[in-house]
């Protein structure tokens, strides 16, 4: 598998802008394990190999269990995730599949029960960021496998 182009080299400023968004999410106070679940779930839906490789490695490094990663695509059917994680995953799915179905009031209200307004923005920005990374990696075909997780 070969990359189509290296966007980081072609437009370093574009990468920097994306990293700024990422920095905001990291500093937002959103729990890291929850963010890794969100990133992994969005990457599953979008089918981003590079991102799945990266975020499952990061999740495991952060102490995530194998079982919760295996079952993530069927999270609704399992008792493995907390109410807050379930709310975040439902919000992630709705926003990632936004062209398929409206983001309903009911879903918004349900999500707000677990996240305050500031957290809602952080969570939503996290979903925007990972969907951005997913689209970059898929479109420019970043080869998966090489990612080494950094310290948590």
């Amino acid at each position: 598998m070969k990359a189509r182009l290296n966007y980081a080299e072609v437009a370093p400023k574009a990468l920097k802008a994306m990293l700024e968004l990422e920095n905001y999410v990291h500093g937002s106070g959103l729990e890291r394990p929850l963010y890794e679940l969100v990133k992994t779930r969005a990457s599953q839906i979008n089918g981003c190999a590079y991102c799945l490789d990266m975020h499952t490695k990061d999740a495991r490094k952060g102490g995530e269990t194998e079982q919760r990663l295996y079952a993530l695509s069927a999270w609704q059917e399992t008792p493995f995730y907390t109410e807050r994680e379930r709310a975040a995953l439902a919000w992630t799915e709705a926003l990632t599949l936004i062209s398929e179905e409206e983001v309903s009031d009911a879903l918004y209200e349900a999500t707000r029960k677990q996240f305050n307004e500031t957290e809602m923005v952080a969570l939503t920005m996290a979903i925007v960021a990972i969907n951005g990374w997913n689209r970059l990696a898929i479109s420019f075909r970043t080869p998966p496998g090489s990612y080494q997780p950094q310290g948590h």
Binding site: G63, Q67, F80, Y81, T82, E85
Partner: peptide
């Protein structure tokens, strides 16, 4: 405290 004691935390 199931909201905070996630499975990974219990495992750790």
């Amino acid at each position: 405290d199931p909201a905070n004691d996630t499975i990974p935390r219990l495992k750790a």
